[in-house]
């Protein structure tokens, strides 16, 4: 008889019973729908214990790596510690603040203990008074400090504080990491397409550097879109990375004003389609404002990219 722990309580699972059946039978509410391993409504995470491969079939590699599985097709073989999602809060402090443009601030943080994360995931930054906002990680775990790119939101409380008042050594808390938009090794020759707008560049830079560090050998194509050239940032660093990395290219894209600056002009999705009309066999990462992410996700899919190879993170702005 295997034991399932969930939400601080223990439940027994009968032989042959699925995790979902065992939990439902004992009155635990777990979202579910098809109960056939298809719809993924019943996704849970095994923090401890091993789930059979069949329970992770069809899931994105990033979810598999974090222990997520489909409870409706997971027949219990041994004890499991289960959780819906989440993480822990950690003490940290600001160690660097650098304006990259008028509206983008590079924030560097240190934590009391090393944060375990993947480049491209996001953390929730909490100020001492409890104000909290989520930002993607542009750094790699080996960098020592955590790097966030913060856009100054109109009347934004956290971004306003970081831009105008915060100083090095100020204390903060961090929650997370979370998110499944990150690089997973194992297909080193697969071409990668990364595209985003605004500070969507933060996770994409992290993912590119992570892929390069893991010796990804296939093409890595990064596109960064902005309305005007002033909205682009890290151009020098990315151009330098492209010069020293044979399989990496960086294409800045603007809607207007980019003539003569070595910048592509046009809608981001059209520029990508012009460069890469067929995307069968590619893996894609898309980050930035929800409108652009929605359009790009659909365009990449229609250009032949498999749905499970598309990793997206839409930045939803907090209500003011």
């Amino acid at each position: 008889m295997a034991v399932l722990t969930y939400g601080g309580a223990a439940y027994e699972a009968a032989p042959g019973e699925t995790v979902l059946e065992a939990l439902l039978r004992q009155g635990v509410e777990v979202a579910n729908s098809c109960r056939a391993g298809a719809c993924q409504s019943c996704l849970l995470r095994a923090a401890c214990g091993t789930v059979p491969p069949v329970a992770q079939k069809g899931l994105k590699a990033t979810l598999v790596e974090q222990g997520y599985f489909l409870s409706c097709v997971c027949r219990v073989e041994s004890d499991l510690a289960l959780e819906p999602a989440g993480g822990l809060e950690m003490q940290g402090r600001i160690v660097g603040l650098e304006r990259l443009t008028e509206t983008v601030l590079r924030v560097q943080l240190e934590t009391a203990a090393p944060l375990e994360y993947r480049a491209g995931q996001y953390v929730t930054l909490c100020r001492e008074d409890g104000l909290a906002r989520s930002y993607s990680l542009a750094s790699l775990p080996g960098d020592g400090t955590l790097e966030l790119h913060v856009r100054r939101a109109p009347q934004g409380r956290m971004s306003g504080w970081l831009f105008d008042e915060a100083r090095a050594d100020d204390a903060v808390h961090l929650r997370g990491p979370a998110g499944d938009c990150f690089y997973v090794g194992g297909a080193a020759e697969q071409p990668l397409l990364l595209a985003g707008t605004g500070t969507g560049l933060a996770p994409l830079v992290g993912i590119c550097r992570d892929a390069i560090a893991q010796e990804h050998s296939g093409p890595i194509r990064l596109f960064h879109g902005a309305v005007r050239p002033a909205g682009l940032y890290l151009r020098e660093e990315l151009a330098a990375l492209a010069r020293e990395t044979a399989n990496f290219t960086y294409t800045p894209v603007v809607l207007e004003g980019g003539e003569g600056e070595g910048i592509a002009t046009g809608a981001l999705d059209k520029v990508i389609a012009g460069a890469h009309p067929k995307l069968g066999g590619w893996r894609g990462f898309i980050c930035g404002d929800p409108g652009t992410v929605g359009v790009l996700r659909k365009k990449l899919f229609l250009a032949g990219m498999a749905s499970r190879e598309i990793f997206a993170d839409a930045f939803v702005e907090a209500p003011r």
């Binding site: 729908s33 098809c34 109960r35 056939a36 298809a38 719809c39 993924q40 409504s41 069809g58 929605g294 996700r297 659909k298 899919f301 749905s307 598309i310």
Partner: peptide
């Protein structure tokens, strides 16, 4: 405007049913 990941989940559930597979519809 529909969420693609969720929609693909639903399409899988539908195809599973149409293929004569296990379903709860």
């Amino acid at each position: 405007g529909v969420d693609m990941d969720r929609q693909i989940g639903k399409q899988k559930a539908f195809l599973t049913m149409a293929f004569g597979g296990p379903h709860n519809y």
